[in-house]
Design a protein around this nucleic acid. Sequence first.
DNA 1: CCTTGACCTCAACCGAGATTGAGGTTACAG
DNA 2: CTGTAACCTCAATCTCGGTTGAGGTCAAGG
Lengths: 165, 165
Amino acid sequence: MRGNTSDTEPDIERVPWDHVELTVGEVAARSGVAVSALHFYERRGLISSRRTSGNQRRYRRDVLRRVSFIRVSQRVGIPLARISEALATLPADRAPNVRDWERLSRAWRTDLDARIEQLQRLRDDLTDCIGCGCLSLSRCVLANPKDALGQDGPGPRRLLVDEPD
Amino acid sequence: MRGNTSDTEPDIERVPWDHVELTVGEVAARSGVAVSALHFYERRGLISSRRTSGNQRRYRRDVLRRVSFIRVSQRVGIPLARISEALATLPADRAPNVRDWERLSRAWRTDLDARIEQLQRLRDDLTDCIGCGCLSLSRCVLANPKDALGQDGPGPRRLLVDEPD
DNA sequence: CCTTGACCTCAACCGAGATTGAGGTTACAG
DNA sequence: CTGTAACCTCAATCTCGGTTGAGGTCAAGG
């Protein structure tokens, strides 16, 4: 267990809340993310920690917002690599402030809007398709979206002339 | 190459279109799916084939609709395992008809609606969050969705009392 | 008959996003 | 001082949805 020793307790009034460090287990408990995932994020450079003399991780409190941002971003559908890039734009010299987080959050709006629109189009097509009951490769918008017809990548792609199927 | 020999050509008028079989390469070309993926789907039981005397795959034409259904389902975000279950409900004795496909497509509507709604809620929350700039674990709807608070799976989950962060 | 492209199997590998386990250390409460 | 929970590293393993490659067969055109 880890707690304040009664002997060496620092003058708590003089230590700003921001400077109270967290163990990996505390971050896990408070963020709902497994310790193994935190280690993983750290290896990937998404979060970082100070090490104690005994090689244990100690996190600044703002790691909670970082982890929070990571999870929210994942829900938006952003891969870790892109989340990592976004986090890399945060100032290195100071703890990120509200405006920093706002900027990053705003950046995902575009992605999210695009994904929602895409799914809505898919839903409309699916609705039509339920009506036509087709899924025909030569006729159905759903079965045969434009992007399946060429110009994107190697390999044979619908080279043959359409015939009834 | 594979084509009709002029000698043994069957009376084409007497062979319903449905009975014309396809090679794996033809299915790949017509569906836009790689041969390796078709093999993969077959191993997973999503599609099936007859084998020629020389052990080559021959597909019934309705495999095209199956593959089509698989790709559409994937776009909806359904994992292969569930697609497989859905396909397993198709009649084994006859080729699926329009109504069969309609039933399956309709089933995904619910999923799609749910996913869209979820993303829209996320977008709304993100908008709020941009306004509040928070991502605070103790206050932000985004950072702290209900489902992070317990009852779903093992492991410690936000066991500590909330403190300012 | 020969060449060539399409086909076959099986195993290994990829990348994303982690989790699990072995083997060992640290830190704190009693 | 000791017990033990929490921590450490590193490698292996997992799921998902495939791709790649080696080594070999099949089938059709010339």
